[in-house]
Amino acid sequence: MLAGPSVGDAAQTAIAHGAEVVYAVESPVLADAPPDAVVAAAAATVAVAGPRIVLGAKTLLGRDVMPRLAFRLGTALASDCTSLALDADGRLLATRPTYGGNADATVRCLGTPAVASLRPGTVDALEADPARTGDVVAVDAAIDASVVRTRSVERVEQAAEGLRLEDARVIVSGGRGLGGPEPFEQLEALASLLGGAVGASRAACDAGWVPTSYQVGLTGKTVTPELYIAVGISGASQHMAGCANAKAIVAINKDAGANIFKDARFGVIGDWAKVLPAFAEQLHELLD
């Protein structure tokens, strides 16, 4: 399903990526995607298409839309799934991290339809092939402006300083172990050398050392860089939930028992204040 004031080329893009039928819901009320209107559009599409399974992503919008859609359809949402499968009867089996990442639950979805949302970055899109064909079906959802009951008054985007975390190929991330805001300057310098961005754990954000927008984790951003360098981060499950899909995690921590080492491809047990400058200096030599 695509929803917006005008779906435009997006339908062909979805088909090129493998969609066989695209349901297009077009309404001026869908401008800026108010969740109330998107839920209405999705419910109308489900009524027309009659699917057995409804999938969405746990994006900013999906986080609001998917649980409400599930309850509107008389069931609940298998939220933030990291893998999906079908059982022998064709029922959806959804696996999702729970207890902040300490336990993986697999549930059989009993609702008709089953409704699930996927954690961003857990599956790769099919490569686009413009030769693929598919149908575009217009859904007449007749969405009235009155469905939007939570109205957006003002949206303030902080001027993104350089690279977005979600797009960064390299992330240098700092946590409680850094002890204050100043060390983040070293992290910024290292990130800039590697063409990457700086992230942080919730502890560092809650302490006010860096803005909330730096937060990687279950309640922050989900990132999928090639390289994630975690400095002074213990690796609480709720943090790992945001970076576990990094291709390689490097951990620098003075506590040999820190959870972060379990998920790290490379680890250094040591004082970050001594490890990091030498690491950065050596990188300078290698990369210059």
Partner: peptide
Amino acid sequence: LTKPESRVETEMITGEDDADAGRKLA
């Protein structure tokens, strides 16, 4: 309901001291 398996083999980098480990990591 299961504990997630650790999916990676961790290679610990050591050196003569912390700075040396940092250089070797690079």
